[in-house]
């Protein structure tokens, strides 16, 4: 009886190891600058940036075949000193021709102090399909407190991502 239990346990252990053995993980940082041309009116205005992707280069593994999971672990927005005070809140989204617009992080409210502010990242956003494409668009919706007659508004967005792939 003991032998049967041992054999069964070994079988399951091998099965679990086999199932988990195929994947690799890499932590990367993606940095981009989103921008839009003014004038800007009170309420939501969209800042965008196209992200060309070479995922093999990003994770540093030429053997990568497919991205199986991506988690946004941290996202930070940086602007010029004092600029953050102009906004109520922000929503960070990914979008592409092949994938639906997906909200990945939000800040509400935005603290007007300092030059940078951290987003609350989504636990449920499914974003791996964006990383199997050659490019996608990052869209930052900024809620302006009042009209601003500026030529351009820019924000630097840094994203820490955990990439699982095979």
């Amino acid at each position: 009886m003991k032998r049967i239990i041992q054999t069964t346990a070994s079988f399951f252990l091998v099965l679990v190891l086999f199932a988990c053995g195929g994947g690799k993980t890499s932590n990367i940082t993606l940095e981009t600058t989103v921008s839009a041309d003014g004038p800007f009116f009170q309420g939501g205005n969209s800042l965008v940036a196209d992200i060309p992707l070479n995922i093999k280069e990003l994770v540093g593994d030429e053997s990568l075949q497919e991205v199986t999971s991506v988690t946004l672990t941290k996202a930070v927005m940086q602007m010029e000193e004092g600029a953050l005070a102009s906004f109520n809140n922000a929503t960070l989204q990914f979008v592409s021709d092949a994938n639906p617009m997906t909200t990945v992080a939000i800040i509400n409210p935005i603290s007007g102090e300092g030059k940078s502010v951290s987003f609350t990242t989504s636990d449920e956003a499914e974003i791996e399909s964006f990383f199997n494409e050659e490019s996608f668009t990052v869209l930052l919706d900024l809620d302006f407190k009042e009209d601003q007659y500026l030529e351009t508004v820019e924000a630097k967005v840094n994203m820490n991502l955990t990439i699982e792939y095979k």
Binding site: P100, T103, N108, T121
Partner: peptide
Amino acid sequence: VDKNNPDEKMRTKPLRGYRILKD
């Protein structure tokens, strides 16, 4: 705010400015 969002962490997102039609 979007208090009924299935993703609890996204429930502070304001409704004004919310994209309800997508893609």
